[in-house]
């Protein structure tokens, strides 16, 4: 128990405004997840396209808060933000390409 006093480290007190912001983001994530459940069990499955649009929208909202605030990306240098975001264009392309391909496979297998 001797090492406790070895360093002259100055511990700063908790900054309430910072922790409050963290809790605010956590509440947003929790509420959006709860809303996803609400949508899953209130909007009937017949409205498939509407359900998917709402789910994807809410997922992007959650992803934004996790990446921007929890991973602190919104507060990094602008070039760092862009060098992470721009390559994701390839993902958008892959979504379009493979979902169209999936539909094409379906139309061949079940004409």
């Amino acid at each position: 128990m001797q090492q406790e006093s070895t360093s002259g480290v100055v511990v700063q007190p908790v900054d309430k405004s910072k922790t409050n912001k963290i809790i605010k983001v956590a509440v947003i994530l929790g509420v959006v997840t709860a809303l996803e459940f609400l949508v899953a069990f209130t909007i009937p499955h017949d409205f498939a396209a509407l359900r998917i649009i709402i789910f994807v929208g809410m997922t992007i909202v959650k992803a934004f808060y996790i990446v921007a605030e929890f991973m602190h990306l919104a507060h990094e240098a602008k070039m760092l933000i862009w060098s992470i975001l721009i390559p994701l264009v390839f993902v958008v392309w892959l979504i379009a390409a493979l979902l169209i391909q999936g539909g094409a496979i379906f139309s061949v297998l079940y004409p």
Binding site: I95, L99, I105
Partner: peptide, 23 residues
């Protein structure tokens, strides 16, 4: 993490492709 994001995207998009090719 960006490269890992590509890996997970590929897996999830493959799920989309396979799901769309089934009734």
């Amino acid at each position: 993490l960006l490269s890992d994001a590509f890996t997970f995207s590929a897996l999830l998009i493959a799920y989309g492709l396979i799901r769309y090719s089934h009734p």
